[in-house]
Design a protein around this nucleic acid. Sequence first.
DNA 1: ATTTTTATGTACCGATCGGTATATATTGAA
DNA 2: TTCAATATATACCGATCGGTACATAAAAAT
Lengths: 201, 201
Amino acid sequence: MSAGRKRAFDKSAALDKAMHVFWENGYSGTSISDLTEALGINKPSLYAAFGNKEQLFTTALEHYKSRYGEPVLEKLTKPADVPLVDRIRTYAQGIVDLVCGKSYPRGCLFVKSSCESGSTGIPDDITSLLQNMGSATQLTLSRLFELEQQQGRISSQTKPEELASYLLSVLYGISVLARQGRPREELNGIIEVAIKGLPLV
Amino acid sequence: MSAGRKRAFDKSAALDKAMHVFWENGYSGTSISDLTEALGINKPSLYAAFGNKEQLFTTALEHYKSRYGEPVLEKLTKPADVPLVDRIRTYAQGIVDLVCGKSYPRGCLFVKSSCESGSTGIPDDITSLLQNMGSATQLTLSRLFELEQQQGRISSQTKPEELASYLLSVLYGISVLARQGRPREELNGIIEVAIKGLPLV
DNA sequence: ATTTTTATGTACCGATCGGTATATATTGAA
DNA sequence: TTCAATATATACCGATCGGTACATAAAAAT
């Protein structure tokens, strides 16, 4: 055990709170004071634990990915014996639940941050990180569709990457609509329309 | 003609520049200094011509709607003798051109602003305005699909509002992907997948 | 018990934020 | 030519921005 005074707050709980603040207000819209107030700590403690604003945001975004993004994405592949269409539906409904959650802000932190990225006030590293996360998701979806095509379970008339981009597009759009306040039932309706149109069979 | 010194800058050109600054950096990410520098005027002139930051943003958003939103939306209804599917394609390609434009920022100002809305730093009036603009577009699309159904030109198996939400979702998603830097061809591919799946016949 | 290490609280830094007071310049009207 | 009205430029306002110096408190290591 290393020497020194013990941290008086729960670091992972603090990170979770910070993530929610960014989720609600965005990167530019969040001030250090917003964060210290929400976390109930003072500035030197925040800087000591998480580094500067950019570093904290990056950490919060990774936390968001592992806490919300990846668990939902898993529904797309597991259980493997469930038909792909049903896995897509469960996955998409998981996204709807996420962007319509009552215990956290509306919309998706990743989508919100992507829209904010590329601006003057956003560090280049954050813009790159968001691009890379988007590309990674795209690749995951592409590989899934490619695999399903190889196994002859879905039609080969549409390229896997096109299916992936398309699905992502619908889900990103749902996140925007959620932020605009559209009701959950409407978003679930979108999923049904999208799924009906999927060139899977 | 009223008395007084003449304005030394073109007001509508200045509004267009201001719109581009908001489009690039968002509401929170744009400072008054950013605006005065881009417009080549000083603060009192900006405040005299456009009011405060919130009022200028509102005006810029309305300008965006009439300058870019409405002309693209028109392609959905005109020419009326073109089949609906082709009008949808032209409309969607117009959106892709908009969000991939070389002479202005990537993505859609309306989508970007919607994602930013609801935050602490965004005035309530702006959040409401964005919600209303979204609802108006939704209604326009719904009425179009309703009309086409009444004329028996598209299938009645899906409700007009669902078709509208779905189409909006895809297009909003395309705007997010554009902001992430995805290439134009990929976005056009999304449109083709979406159109193939539309329950129109 | 002393030293070393880490966390906390306060107080502060220069820079920038949105917004304005004031003085001057320029215009049309009288 | 004077007056009223509007625009410009400079300089400034209090508040907040992101970030840190510094002194103190608490813990482990010696």
